[in-house]
Simulated scan of single mutants.
Amino acid sequence: MLAGGRPLAVRVVELAAALGHTLAEPLVALTDLPAFDTSAMDGWAVAGPGPWHEVGRVLAGERAGPLADGTAVVIATGAQLPPGATGVLRREHGRLDRGLLRGSALVPGQDVRPRGQECRRAEELLPAGRVVTPAVLGLAAAAGHDRLSVHRRPTVELLVLGDELLDCGPPRPGLVRDALGPLLPPWLAAAGAELIARRHVRDEFGLLRDAVRRSPADLVVTTGGTAAGPVDFLHRALAAAGARLLVDGVAVRPGHPMLLAELPDGRHLVGLPGNPLAAVAGAVTLALPLLAALSGRPAPAHRIEPVGVALPGHPSDTRLLPVVRTGGGVAPLAFDGPAMLRGLALAEALAVVPPGGLPVGGRVELLDVP
């Protein structure tokens, strides 16, 4: 886990409000599921071997009395099975003949969902750390929950730095479109973040210093300004804010000027390079793992897969390379320069290529592309 990356506070919230949060406790069944024997089909609940005398009906939400041997009741899917019933005869398999219900022979328990088939009361259904998806909400409701214990979602402010960035229209002489402003927020949200603001900050030291100091977010993510250029003020701004650098450059291409800092009040800042693919490298290796830790989620999974086409490497640094899967293993994509996103848009993963590259038949670690 990253330094300082401890899960945020636990809160108990209504089911609908839990969506997108992370379970702080295991999800435990408050009831058997199903809570009682139910019919899996429309038809008749029958007792004993046929033929049977039809004596009534039971619908979903109703509770029927016991069935005597040789009798049947019309039953709807999901209705509680009457005591004494031996099974359910499907509607298409039965027929009424002079007051008697006749049908094919039944196996005991046929077309019945027995009590506890899915789970038993007090059984753990999901572990802590699971993201609350719509399916998790449905399972929690079925298991009897009205509220869930979840970790607070970490708040994030995205500061997009640079006087050269445009918010709309095609690039113009000296000006380029901001690609990271649209790209990063969905990734951050998918990692558990609550994005509270996305702001463009001009290349002025005082503006950046104040933006870092005054941000209320648990995590500040910046794009650009991490290197040593004439208007790269992020290091100075962090020093002015009393921040402690935890990561200050890495031996990875693209993305080597990325940084991670801890502010005096315990908040964090991830500085991403301004080049789009370099920023992506910093996002998947620093920002997203930190957000997972703050959200109480497991660290993003890494996989090892075979190399189908030789993966070119950097002479001395690790390289993150957009790749796709082929029948013979992963293969590199073109347009993989630090300022390019075309390869990433086609990529299924980022390959972690050691210095010098990897030959066909080797094995490579893959990072998911959110």
Rank of each mutant, 00 (worst) to 15 (best):
L137K: 04
L126I: 02
T71H: 13
G61Q: 09
R90C: 06
D69H: 07
R115F: 10
P108K: 00
A135W: 03
V58D: 01
G144D: 03
A105F: 08
P127K: 07
G129L: 11
V132T: 03
Q110A: 14
V74M: 09
G109C: 07
L100S: 09
D146M: 11
S149P: 15
G78T: 05
L148H: 01
L67H: 06
G138A: 14
Q80R: 14
S149K: 13
R98W: 11
A140S: 09
P82H: 09
R147H: 15
E62C: 04
G61T: 11
A60D: 14
D111W: 15
V136W: 02
A85Q: 13
T86Q: 09
T71E: 00
T77Q: 14
R120P: 05
P108F: 08
R130F: 00
T133D: 03
V88K: 00
P82R: 09
G103W: 08
G70P: 00
G129V: 11
Q80P: 14
T86W: 05
V58N: 01
A143N: 05
P114I: 03
A60C: 12
V112D: 00
R121Q: 14
G99N: 08
V74A: 14
G61E: 03
T71R: 07
G87M: 08
Q117H: 15
L101N: 05
R113H: 11
Q117F: 13
V58G: 04
G129K: 05
G109A: 03
P82E: 08
A135V: 07
L139D: 01
E118M: 12
V88Q: 00
A128Q: 11
L139P: 00
H145W: 09
P82C: 02
V74E: 15
E118A: 14
R102Y: 06
D69Y: 07
E92V: 13
G99K: 09
L106T: 05
Q110V: 11
L67V: 04
A140M: 04
L101G: 12
P108N: 04
A105D: 07
E62P: 00
A68G: 14
D111S: 12
L67P: 12
R102W: 10
P108Y: 08
Q110T: 08
E118V: 15
A135N: 05
L106R: 07
E118H: 10
G109F: 01
G99V: 00
L126Y: 00
R90A: 15
G138P: 00
P66S: 06
E123G: 04
P83A: 12
R102C: 11
E124D: 13
L96Q: 09
T133Q: 10
G129F: 04
R95S: 12
A140H: 06
A85R: 05
A68W: 12
A122F: 15
E124L: 05
V88A: 01
G84A: 02
L59K: 14
